[in-house]
Structure formats: C-alpha cells, structure tokens
Nucleic acid binder design. Structure first.
Lengths: 197, 197
DNA sequence: CGTCTATTTGAATGTACTCAAAAGCGGTGG
DNA sequence: CCACCGCTTTTGAGTACATTCAAATAGACG
C-alpha cells in the first residue's frame, strides 16, 4: 500500500503542469529510484558530486551548509511533495557544499543526472514541467532574498510561521533559527517577547 | 547597425541552450517587441500587472521595491544581456509590487505574456531554454539568499565587487547599498574602513 | 555657475551576537 | 517505568554590527 502511493504523489505533482499518458507515466517511473534515510542520517555530504535530485514522499529533509565558523545555515526544509537537492552541484556536476540530513525517518524518489537528461530526450514535455517548477521556485527565492535583506528577524519569523505552519511545528527552534539566519538564543528572545503581547 | 545587433545578442543568449533554424529565429524575433527608456524613466510601477519579460540590450535597469517605511530594496540590476522583470506578477498576472527604472538610457526587447505562451506552443524547444535559464537564476538566488542570512554587509559587498565589477562601477553607492540591504551611510563606513587596509 | 543629490563623518540608539549557565525535554537503557 | 544523559531552550550580561538623525562636503547635471 506504500510503494504505489509514492508514485501517485509524484505523478500528481507533475500533473500540475503537464499531462502524461500511461506509457509516459511508466517511463517516468522507470527513471526514478526509491530511497530512504533514517532520522539523523545523511543523504548527502559536502565534497560529493550530487548525483540526484530528490522528491520527498514522507518525512523531512534539511538542506544546510556550515560557514567557516562552523555555524549552520539552512537552505530549505523539504517535507512531503517537495523537490530538493543541490542544483548547482547537480547541474554543473561539481562538488557540493551542502549537507542533506533527515530530520525524521524519510522516504523519497530520486532522479539521476543521466536519467534527468534521458527524461528530456524521451518526453520533451518534461522541459515544460521543470520550467514551471523552477519558475515557481525562483519566485519564492526572489521573495526570500528580499526578505533577508529588508526585514528584521522577528518579521521573517512571523512570515515563516504563517507560510509554513506545518513545517514550523515539525522542526526544532535551533533548525528554524539556522533557516532564519539568526542564533537559537535570539529566536528564543523573539518568541518570549512575542508571547508577551 | 543597431537594430539588427539587438537580435544577434538575444539569439546568442538563446543559443547557449538551444539551436534554432532560420525560420524559428524569425518566428522568435517576430514575437519580440522593442522598447526603450531614458535615464530615470520608469519601465514599470507597482500596481501594474506585468505584461512583459525584458531582455536588456543596452543600458541598465534597476528592479526595486519600497518597504512600508519608504526604504528602497533593490532586487536586481539588469545590464546588457540580462533577462529581468517581475516573475511573480508575470506568471500569475497579478499586480506587481516592483518598480523598474532605467539608470541609464536603456534599450531592451520584450516578450508579452501571450507571445510567451505562443512561443512555447510554436517552438517547444523554448521550454528547454527557459528551463535552463531559470535553473541558473535559481542557483544564484539560492546562493544570494544564503549570503543574505549568513554574511556581514562587508562580506556581501566584497562578493558583489568581485562578481559584478562591471555593474559596481556603473551604479551609485546608494543603489548598491539598497541592493546589499544596508544604508548608504553604512556602506560609506565600510568603504572607508576597507580602504584603510 | 548654481542647484540638487550623493557621499562622508559623527554621535546616539537599536538589533542581533557571544559567552556562560541554568532549566527543560526526549530518548534510551536498565 | 523510571532515571539518567545529552541536547534544546531559556535567561542574562556584555559586545559587535548596523541604523537613525544631523550636518558638512563633494560631485553631477542642466
């Protein structure tokens, strides 16, 4: 009951932007690999050349890097129905600078670089799918970039809570602080200040 | 000698990711409109529904918004060979929150929403072009987002100088400060501190 | 040349960080 | 099922980064 469900989920995701017939669906599915990671396990580490893009079907992944002072910075949290990975490393096939770690027992589907290319060759419609997917991601990253340089930590925290309440209540404050770009101590202060209102 | 050059430029840009034959080139060109803006002139203002995506062939555009305190935040500077616009507004056809203003006398090519759709219908290869274009933009926005939350203003300033020296020397410090997300006064301090080393 | 805007400089303030220590909470083994 | 251990969260004091406001100076454009 579990295995087919994964594919229903990803096909529905793809179906937002393109329509596939049965043989195309089968081909697409055949280009995917199943993967999983237990809580606290790494899916990827810096130095590796990213071999896959990931689509999470269950659980939660944290994509992050360490700066030269050893401080974590979270690029994104990927829960069910999220695509993730290190695009720069995947695209250019150069060593990644990111960690991907499971915050919960997690299941995902992966597509390798070569199957990604093959997908475009066999079913050109997928160019359209990814064009749309990236277009949307771009919109949200442009927004997040602007928020990062123009808003206070408190404002960014409130935006995150409103936009991703279902993520906020699955992660620790420490990880959320690393996503917001502030220290856990400061996030704690913000919360106590906000609760007094 | 000027008008044809514009199209050579954009065809070369497109040629990075897809190959077009002559009739495809002609069709593509026919879906573009030429535009221009004098220094200090607005190309777009908040409240408008973005009708076009822009490709700059000469000059420099500043894409920015005002926060509730009236402070400018620059999303990007677009010089020759840059694509720009307000993707969110263009994609969803909802009112923009951005200004686009010419910092120099600027010339650009535009593609309207309906021609954008038509382009995909007539020459599906363009899905691939924009898929690649957006993929690249995404990589740089992911990086910029991480820089915004993890680096000091001084570090972000140095990165900008190294990455876009040709832009840095065309814009004012005030505009650069608005891009970095700091006040012009603070950028001035950073510069004087750096020059003392 | 004059005017308008950008840039510089400085003092006072606010936002966010560092370091330290205590309190809370969750998972694990006995 | 309880007790312990390790990690997260809280709290606080002192500090660094960045802003605000004000005023002087420098530059650019008409």
């Amino acid at each position: 009951m579990d295995a087919p469900y994964k594919y229903d989920l990803i096909l529905k995701n793809v179906g937002r932007f393109i329509e596939l017939n049965d043989s195309e669906k089968d081909l697409f599915k055949s280009l995917l690999t199943e993967g999983s990671a237990k809580r606290k396990e790494f899916v990827m580490q810096p130095g590796e050349i990213t071999k896959h893009e990931y689509y999470v079907t269950k659980g939660c992944l944290k994509v992050y890097s360490l700066d030269r002072n050893g401080v974590q910075h979270v690029s994104m949290f990927a829960i069910e129905d999220f695509w993730t990975g290190d695009m720069a490393s995947f695209m250019l096939q150069q060593p990644s600078t990111y960690y991907i770690k499971a915050l919960e027992d997690t299941e995902f589907l992966m597509i390798s670089k070569s199957n990604f290319e093959r997908l475009f060759k066999e079913i050109p419609k997928f160019e359209r799918f990814y064009r749309n997917l990236y277009q949307r991601s771009l919109v949200s990253y442009v927004r997040r970039t602007n928020e990062g340089i123009s808003l206070t930590a408190e404002e960014r925290y409130e935006i995150f809570l409103n936009k991703y309440p279902h993520i906020a209540n699955r992660i620790t404050q420490k990880d959320l602080a690393a996503y917001l770009g502030i220290t856990p101590e400061f996030l704690s202060m913000i919360r106590s200040k906000m609760s007094k209102r």
